[in-house]
Structures are given as structure tokens and as C-alpha cells.
Amino acid sequence: MGSSARKKKEKKKDFQKTKLKVGKAKQKADNVTDTSFRSKSITVNQQSLTTTAPSSFSQFSHYVSLASSSKSDTQRKDALSYLTTQLSSQPVNASMPLPTAILLPKLIPLILDGSPAVRSQLLKFLRLLPPAEVGDRAEQSLLYTRAGMTHLSAPIRVDALALLEWLLEVAQEDIVTCPGGWVKTLKSFMSMMGWASSSGSTKWTSASRASFGKAGKAFPRQIIMLAKFLQAGLVEESSESLTSTSNGLFPLCDVEVHMIPARSNAFAHLNLFGSSRDEEGEMYIDREERQRVFATKFQPAVMEGLENVKKEAGEAGRAAAILSKALREGMVDYSGIDDTQ
């Protein structure tokens, strides 16, 4: 048949010698491997090919941008760890390559990053920033902290709590007084712990927590952080500095009050230039104000939740004890008379 003839021919072809032709390149063997390659660029990882190496400053800013906007997880993490080593290894009194005012807004969104490694590296990095400069950026940092606390993903929530812990350590006063810092953060706590209730519906069942799941181990930690936060906002600072100065020269008492304020934007609470704020976004400068807002808006929910947790005992129970202590201390001198209205 025809097909077999064709097959025979094909079989024969393998053993035939190819004819060489004048002026043509030699034919390639069938089993030749193509080793040519094309690439747009050759990347050398570690070496700098320029004759003048980039300055440490430019390298630092490069890594900052890499950390904040790179597409790959590892690259972001590596950039952050580079920044960390740079900051930790520099001499004590040397000024930072970039000021906190630039670094913090660029890097704080990484708390919402999907990769856990990046987030933990970010927390390590933030601890190296000078505490004094963080206070001015408290509002912005808190925005991302709150977003992290209400995030769908549980690990991000945990890391956001760690971020809040750091913020409370370095800028306790600013955190609770900045616009929205008190009420909104408390609200985030409520929703994170499942103690919030809808304004519309009556409470029928206890929280179903379909998406947040049982907080498990993280729950005691959340309670402890809430305790810390309440302590920061409600418990009075031991005013040693005040007493020390008042003992000074006799006629000059309460001088600080009449001097030009040392902190930045001292009249921010008047909100002269910004858009109008609602109750949630308001600044609560006084301790009494914070107490009042807490008592009217959050205390019932917190007390109720606390009762439930105490029954659970275990680690959560112990944490609840800390929280109730903080509550007692904070609200001990609250008169309950609402004189603002």
C-alpha cells in the first residue's frame, strides 16, 4: 500500500548521507542542542558595576522604595532587613539617613502586607525608630493599625496588635489624644473581640464569628492589649514633673501652662483648618472626656464581655482580671455626671 511505501522511504532517509553543497553552511545534526540565548539584560546580584559606588544615603532610600513598593515578598522582606541592619549598626549619635517623617508613612502600610515575614520584619524595624519622633505621626500610624486590627486575616490582626503595643510604648499620650485615636480605636477593639453590637438589631444570639473564627490564643492577648490601651487613656499619669517645677521660684507657679507649648500643633483640637469632625473623629485631650465617652459608649459592652470571659477561666480569665483591674483604676474617680450637655 501507499502508506507503507512512504514509511519505508522515511526509514531509509535516516541512513542516507546528506550531500554537502558549495557555499552553504553545513547542515546541523538532528540531535544538536540549541545553546544560543537571548536576554534583555544581565543582572549581577551582588556587585556594583559602576566605578563610583552609590552613596549609603542613596542606597538607603533605594531600599526604602523597594520595601514599600516591590512586587515580590522576599524582596520586600530583604529590603526591610537591610534597612534594619543599617539603622542598628550605625553609630549612636549619628543622624538617621532619612527622617522618621518620611520613613514611617512609607513603611507603615506594610502592616497590612500579606506575607508574615514582611510584617515581623517591619515590627523589628519600627522599634529602631527614635521614639520622640513617632508621636507626631501617631494619627497616620493609627489609621493603619486600626485597619490591621479589623482585618479579615487573623495573623495580620495579631501583628497589628503588636504595632499598637509599640505605639503605646513610644507615644502613649499622642495615641489616645490624636483625632479619632480614642473612640475609633476602641471601636476597632470591640469589633475585633466580637463585643460590638449592631445599632439596628437586638442581640439575639451571641456572636457567630463566621469570618473571624474563634480567636483562640490571640484572644487573651487582645484583652491584655485592651487593658493596656485603657490604662493609657484612663489612668492618670504620675505627675512627678509637675510637682518638681511647682516647687521652684515662688512667684512663678504654673509657668508651663502660660508658655508657648512645646508640642507640635498644640491647637489641633480646635480644628481650625481641617474639615469638620464627627464624634468619632474628635480629639479627646482630657482624661475626663475620655472617661465620659468610654462610659457612655463602650463600658456596658466591655463589662458584659468581661463577665463572659471571666467565666472561661484559664489564660483568658487571667487576662480578664488584668483588664478589670485597669478598668477599676481608670474609672475610679469618674463621677458619672454628664456635665457637657
Binding site: 485597619a147 479579615l152 460590638a196 449592631s198 463566621a210
Partner: peptide, 9 residues
């Protein structure tokens, strides 16, 4: 509750 969480977010 879940909705409120998302709304908070």
C-alpha cells in the same frame, strides 16, 4: 457581627 467587622474594615 461579621458584617460589622467588614464594615469596620
Amino acid at each position: 457581627e461579621d458584617f460589622l467587622n467588614q464594615y469596620g474594615q
